[in-house]
């Protein structure tokens, strides 16, 4: 048996965390309690439940960005009109996470802190230039998501620090935004490869701006900035599509595991990207 701390305010949560440095921060618990299952009873660390911390809940609009509380569950994100307006890509991704009950429990902050290569919310957050706001008794700071996530299960979160909000800059929408997840079945499956893409074309139908990100094909989300730059000005035709496929095939670095082989992931990563680019023309 271990204690469960249930602070109602952020300062209280930070104080409790300072007093219990071994405490595990718990939001939706969908990942944490599964991992804890294997633990030998009697040695479990204290749990710090963040579900009732008011500052970590909900979605607010500020002048320059949309702020999503770290302990906001995905079902709330999916239902929120502000997220639909400013970050439809995140809505698309959130809809593919777990089943309905999991989406009522699992939170955006939890998905980020778990830092799984397969985290479904991550590719959209990279494309949306999300910043991760952190708080500790010493103060606040914010990091770009790419700087926050360091590797599988590793983040820049320091001892005594909590993720408080995810900040999404309000930027003009892209006419084409698409998230695609592939798994071994249609629902309730951990991603084998995921893809997020945003693009706009110029008046001549050439690519004006394109951003792409892949999940589950590297230790963290994979971006191919050189390809994105190279594609600016390219017409949407077969040669471009082929170029994209080749570049992705070479650019991603997946591993083989129980869910799929590296080779398959590479193929699908390329196919999802070419499908996205091809569809820009249609």
């Amino acid at each position: 048996m271990s204690a469960v701390l249930t602070p109602a305010r952020l300062d209280e949560a930070l104080r409790l965390l300072a007093e219990n440095p071994a405490a595990l921060a718990m939001a939706g618990a969908t990942d944490l309690l599964v991992r804890r299952r294997g633990a030998i009873p009697g040695h479990e660390p204290v749990l710090l439940s963040l579900a009732h911390v008011a500052e970590l809940q909900g979605i607010t609009e500020e002048a320059a960005f949309l702020a999503i509380g770290a302990a906001t569950p995905f079902s709330r994100i999916i239902a929120d009109p502000l997220v639909h307006r400013y970050a439809p890509l995140l809505v698309q991704a959130a809809q593919t996470i777990g089943g309905p009950a999991i989406r009522n429990m699992a939170t955006l902050g939890g998905n980020i802190c778990t830092a799984s290569p397969a985290g479904d919310s991550l590719p959209p957050l990279y494309l949306l230039d999300a910043r991760i706001e952190l708080a500790s008794p010493a103060g606040e700071r914010a990091l770009p998501i790419a700087a926050f996530i360091l590797g599988p299960g590793r983040t820049a979160l320091e001892q005594g620090e909590l993720v408080t909000r995810i900040l999404l800059p309000k930027a003009p929408r892209f006419p084409r935004e698409r998230f695609i997840k592939t798994g071994r079945r249609k629902a309730l499956a951990i991603s084998v490869t995921s893809f997020a893409g945003r693009a706009r074309l110029d008046q001549d139908g050439r690519i004006a701006e394109i951003r792409m990100a892949w999940g589950s094909v590297g230790p963290t989300v994979v971006r191919l900035p050189a390809l994105e730059t190279e594609l600016v000005g390219a017409p949407v035709h077969a040669a471009t599509v082929e170029r994209v496929g080749l570049a992705v095939h070479q650019g991603v670095a997946p591993i083989s595991d129980l869910r799929a082989s590296a080779g398959y992931r590479r193929l699908v990563a390329a196919n999802l990207a070419t499908q996205f680019v091809e569809a820009l023309g249609g």
């Binding site: 469960v4 249930t6 618990a29 969908t30 309690l33 599964v34 299952r37 749990l47 439940s49 579900a51 079902s75 777990g98 089943g99 309905p100 009950a101 999991i102 009522n104 429990m105 309730l188």
Partner: peptide, 28 residues
């Protein structure tokens, strides 16, 4: 016991939750 089957689904404040992935303190 790992939130994959849904047999333990209950409603908490009107929303579905998986009771195998919740601890008692969260019910307060």
């Amino acid at each position: 016991g790992t939130g994959e089957c849904g047999a333990c689904t209950i409603l908490v404040n009107g929303q579905t939750r998986l009771s195998c992935l919740m601890v008692a303190a969260q019910l307060d």
